[in-house]
Design a protein around this nucleic acid. Structure first.
Lengths: 132, 132
DNA sequence: CTTGACCCTATAGCGGCTTCAGGGTGCATA
DNA sequence: TATGCACCCTGAAGCCGCTATAGGGTCAAG
């Protein structure tokens, strides 16, 4: 399987696959006579794992840990739990921040609509003092 | 006022202030005999504007536009409105994504808690096939 | 034998800073 | 006067997670 095929199967850009290889997240595959990368099923599996983890908001550093952990099938998964819990906590923080932000922006937008800059409530809210 | 004072007053790192100057968001201030930047009230106002905008999730590019708009007090603020509305839409997108992500992670965490890697629901959910 | 889709490497760029290396300034204290 | 220390300076590189660009090589179909 060539890199383009792998890219299609995992919904990943070709450049990203090469980037993961350079980052040692994905082992370097064999090459054919024309120096093209040739991938096996194991690469597909591993790349799928990486992409799903990324989609779930894990950082590449966390993905690295998860990959290492996933290889030791006998170990307890407390660490997997804690990485996941950390991500949930981070998401909660972001949700709260974004919610507050939204409220504030919507309020400003409602006050402002259609006036001129001089009376614009958004600009006013941003400006720290009557501009000279 | 020296850069450190300005930094404290606006809750901004000194390096960030210098970065804003390089980016031409904040005009270069005068210097004292020792080549220290000396800031006036106008700088404080402008930096406050920038920081509040950033806190509200505007990009530096948007801040640039807002600053330009804020100077033309007679213009209608339709553009300010549309920049703000774009931000709200972006926030809504992120809120939806994060909400879905959270649900998925929490479900995995609940299934997994305390088992070994071999039975870990999180790892299982990430792995695309029974690992060799 | 040419076209065009695919592949290769190496390097730079994105946003929004942060950090680092290697200095200079300014003021209080011994 | 020396010295210590907090603060300031510049320029460049680093961070994340890719993405894009330049400048080529490979390969199968027509």
């Amino acid at each position: 399987m060539k890199i383009g095929d792998l890219a299609r199967l995992t919904n990943t850009r070709v450049e990203t696959i090469r980037f993961y290889e350079k980052e040692e997240l994905l082992p370097a595959p064999g090459r054919n006579k024309g120096n093209y990368r040739i991938y096996e099923q194991a690469h597909l599996n591993r790349l799928s794992f990486i992409r799903r983890s990324r989609d779930l908001g894990f950082t590449l550093e966390q993905v690295r840990k998860l990959l290492k952990l996933a290889d030791d099938r006998a170990a307890p998964c407390t660490e997997v739990d804690s990485i996941t819990a950390a991500n949930i906590a981070e998401i909660d923080r972001k949700l709260a921040d974004l919610g507050a932000l939204r409220t504030e922006l919507v309020r400003k937008l409602e006050c402002c609509r259609g006036s001129t800059i001089a009376d614009c409530r958004i600009i006013e809210a941003l400006a720290p003092a009557p501009s000279k």
